[in-house]
Each structure stands twice: as C-alpha cells, then as structure tokens.
C-alpha cells in the first residue's frame, strides 16, 4: 500500500516523484502499473505545488529560560 500523499512532506513527495519518473524511464511494466505510476506522479506534483502555495515560514525562538516559543515571522 502506497503512503497517503496528503500526509507527505514536500521532500518525501518530491523524492517519490523522482523515483516514479525514473521508473517510467525504465519501461518494463504493465499498462495498469503505468497508469497507476502516471496518476500518482500527477498527484505528487499537485501535492508539491500545493505545499508551496500554502507554506508560511514558521519561526521559533529559544528564550533566556531555555524554552522554545513560536514567534511571528
């Protein structure tokens, strides 16, 4: 079972996308596999773009007390 794309980080999604492209370059798969790979590649690309669209820089700061607090960027 392939991991759920929605839960993926950008990096993981990109990694899998690259793997899929490499796999498609090799050929040697069934039509069903090819369609699945292609569809998954499309979904991964979409997910990566989506991640970039929604991203907001998260900034944390170490306080004098040794705590880590979230601050506005």
């Amino acid at each position: 079972m392939l991991p759920d794309i929605d839960d993926m980080t950008f990096e993981t999604a990109l990694e899998e996308l690259e793997a899929i492209v490499a796999r498609l370059e090799q050929g040697n798969f069934t039509l069903e596999e090819a369609m699945q790979l292609f569809e998954r590649g499309q979904q991964l690309t979409h997910h990566c773009n989506q991640q970039l669209n929604q991203a907001v820089l998260r900034v944390e700061q170490l306080t004098a007390d040794g705590e880590i607090i979230e601050v506005d960027s």
């Binding site: 950008f10 900034v59 944390e60």
Partner: peptide, 8 residues
C-alpha cells in the same frame, strides 16, 4: 517558506 527557523 516550507522551511522552519529556530532562532538562538
């Protein structure tokens, strides 16, 4: 913006 920052 996908990166997180930890400021010391």
């Amino acid at each position: 913006p996908l990166v997180a920052v930890l400021v010391a």
